[in-house]
């Protein structure tokens, strides 16, 4: 199948543009998207095509998020930019008390096809209020599907699904991913939610990860292969729902599980994965389940401190040493 190379940001734009062509009720709005093309340029690929459906808004997060409910109930399919994951908190009630609850509280009267999307995660020295990864919170709270892709091909296919399914979705697009290039099929395709991707097959340790940490884990896996340690790197791609089957089957094969995420280790989503795996595959585990995550402080501005707080390949390598191979 023919493929083209494109950035993660352009893969998103391609998916949205294709679906906008088919569905005139899809529109997107948020801060800095129409004139600027997104604070990281992530909307630039969309400009000049459906400009009446790409709308700048005031800095008014309660309305930016809460309005999605009204827009969906009025018969449209809104894609809502959250600007920085950190600022989800400024309109959090509209998400937790409205978007996540309305369908349930109404007894399932209508679908709520809402997409919240935006950048999350560490960028260099953005400090504590501009570099948070907070996907665990959205996995904890019932009522929204959580998508957290690591490659252009994945983000394209997951957006195609998101724009053709009936429920609220939040997409976390790591800042460091937008410019990352990869090959994407020229033909349209969808990737179902809840289907993990084994990014690298291996036999000794199962690594479950997402987003930027997929790439850190892949680098660690390449280095460890030289010393004869084989990692199987599983990219969950979606946290709600998450692919238990692929993870548990892998753990049954390797007997070891390492969970790697950029968000804080304490009560991060890795704890949930670990708990389910020990319930369902306890007898297969040869070692404790280990986790890599950020240290439990806000992200510091100072470069050396940020490197210390935020996990990367080195943390994966260090954690692997704990396993009795």
């Amino acid at each position: 199948m023919a493929k083209s190379e494109m950035t993660y940001a352009d893969a998103i734009c391609r998916a949205i543009e294709e679906e906008m062509a088919k569905d005139p009720t899809i529109f997107t709005y948020g801060e800095d998207i129409a004139q600027q093309g997104g604070i990281f340029g992530q909307y630039k690929g969309l400009l000049g095509k459906y400009d009446d459906r790409v709308i700048d808004t005031p800095i008014s997060e309660e309305v930016i998020f809460g309005s999605a409910v009204g827009a969906a109930l009025a018969g449209t399919r809104p894609i809502v930019e959250f600007h920085f994951a950190d600022f989800l908190f400024t309109g959090m009630s509209a998400i937790t008390n409205q978007i996540m609850k309305i369908r349930y509280m109404s007894g399932g009267q209508r679908d709520l096809p809402i997409i919240l999307r935006g950048p999350d995660g560490r960028s260099n020295n953005a400090a504590a209020q501009h570099s948070q990864s907070i996907e665990s919170i959205f996995m904890h709270l019932p009522g929204i599907k959580v998508v957290i892709p690591s490659t252009p091909a994945d983000v394209y296919g997951l957006y195609k699904t998101a724009l053709n399914q009936p429920d609220p979705v939040i997409v976390f697009e790591h800042k460091q991913m937008y410019g990352r290039k990869g090959m994407v099929d020229d033909e349209e395709y969808r990737i179902p939610f809840g289907k993990a991707d084994i990014k690298r097959a291996g036999t000794d340790i199962t690594v479950v990860t997402t987003s930027r940490m997929v790439h850190e884990s892949m680098q660690a896996a390449a280095e460890l292969a030289n010393s004869g340690i084989s990692l199987e790197v599983i990219d969950l791609r979606t946290l709600v729902p998450w692919d238990r089957e692929t993870v548990i089957n892998s753990v049954k094969k390797t007997g070891r599980l390492l969970i790697v995420h950029e968000t804080w280790k304490r009560a991060g989503w890795g704890a949930e994965i670990a708990s389910v795996v020990q319930e369902e595959a306890f007898d297969y585990l040869d070692d404790p389940i280990y986790r890599v995550g950020a240290k439990n402080v806000p992200n510091s501005f100072s470069p050396e401190q940020e490197n210390f707080i935020m996990p990367d390949k080195e943390n994966v390598l260090a954690e692997v040493k704990k396993f009795l191979l």
Partner: peptide, 30 residues
């Protein structure tokens, strides 16, 4: 929703952003 009632709301002012979104969809998209 069939009656056009987008919800009583347990959150004080919770309906205002919803109304804003409905108005936006009506005016700018539909």
């Amino acid at each position: 929703f069939d009656l056009g009632v987008l919800g009583a709301n347990g959150e004080v002012a919770g309906g205002l952003p919803i109304a804003a979104g409905a108005g936006m969809a009506i005016k700018m998209i539909k």
